[in-house]
Design a protein around this nucleic acid. Structure first.
Length: 217
DNA sequence: CACCAGGCAAGTA
DNA sequence: TACTTGCATGGT
């Protein structure tokens, strides 16, 4: 059998294994679509635990609200999200995203969802502070689009198991997943969440790594 | 104490 | 295009 065919089968097999091992992950943990978008910026290179503190600060003041946020000075946003780290630059990024959503969609996310994801992705990538992973997280979890998210964990796990090259580009890895799985938003959401869970449980130390359920396939 | 976490943008070669 | 650096808090 061709090598690419084996890898293709393995991508599905790993999903089945992780799903059987862990069950559904209930991602993205948030009360609203806007909270997901805000979280997507705040979680950049940051532990989720710290993102929760920042989001919690915004929630207490009922600031998960585009119009309210748009009236706040960037420095004030920075103060509120301080716990998430990189707070000055993230405040600036949030400001850019807020302005984008209000200007282009009048803050109406369900209106935004009507567009094709290819078009939305291009628009999101133009926004300051939104790179490929953040754009795809927003598309997949906030806008329910069938787009696979590639993060550091995904690279680590799949290169570790020799299914992708360690130096592959984002777009190549994304195509690898999307061409070898059903085009399903639900599967993409679960798969990414399962990979994050797996990495946290088994990729920290070498002895843990050897107990990884993927090794038992 | 060092190291990392659900990346991105800007600068350099 | 490919590689480097700054951004910063909080947990382990």
């Amino acid at each position: 059998m061709a090598d690419s065919k084996k890898k293709s089968i393995r991508v599905s097999k790993i999903y089945q294994t992780l799903y059987d091992f862990y069950g559904t992950q209930h991602w993205w943990p948030a009360d609203s679509k806007l909270e997901i978008i805000i979280g997507a910026i705040l979680t950049q290179n940051t532990a989720w635990q710290n993102v929760e503190k920042a989001v919690s600060n915004l929630k207490k003041r009922r600031l998960i609200d585009l119009k309210k946020l748009s009236k706040l000075p960037v420095s004030q946003i920075g103060k509120l999200i301080r716990a998430s780290g990189f707070y000055k630059i993230k405040a600036k990024r949030l400001k850019a995203v807020i302005d984008f959503l209000l200007k282009e969609y009048n803050g109406n996310l369900s209106q935004m969802k009507k567009k094709r994801w290819q078009e939305l992705r291009a628009e999101l990538l133009q926004v300051y502070g939104i790179g490929q992973e953040t754009a795809d997280s927003i598309l997949l979890y906030a806008l329910d689009k069938p787009v696979f998210v590639i993060d550091a964990y995904t690279r680590r796990i799949f290169s570790r198991h020799h299914l992708i090259d360690r130096n592959s580009k984002y777009s190549e890895i994304q195509r690898f997943f999307m061409s070898n799985l059903p085009k399903s938003k639900n599967i993409y959401q679960e798969y990414h969440a399962l990979l994050v869970k797996l990495a946290k449980d088994f990729c920290r130390t070498k002895p843990k790594c050897e107990q990884c359920p993927i090794n038992k396939i």
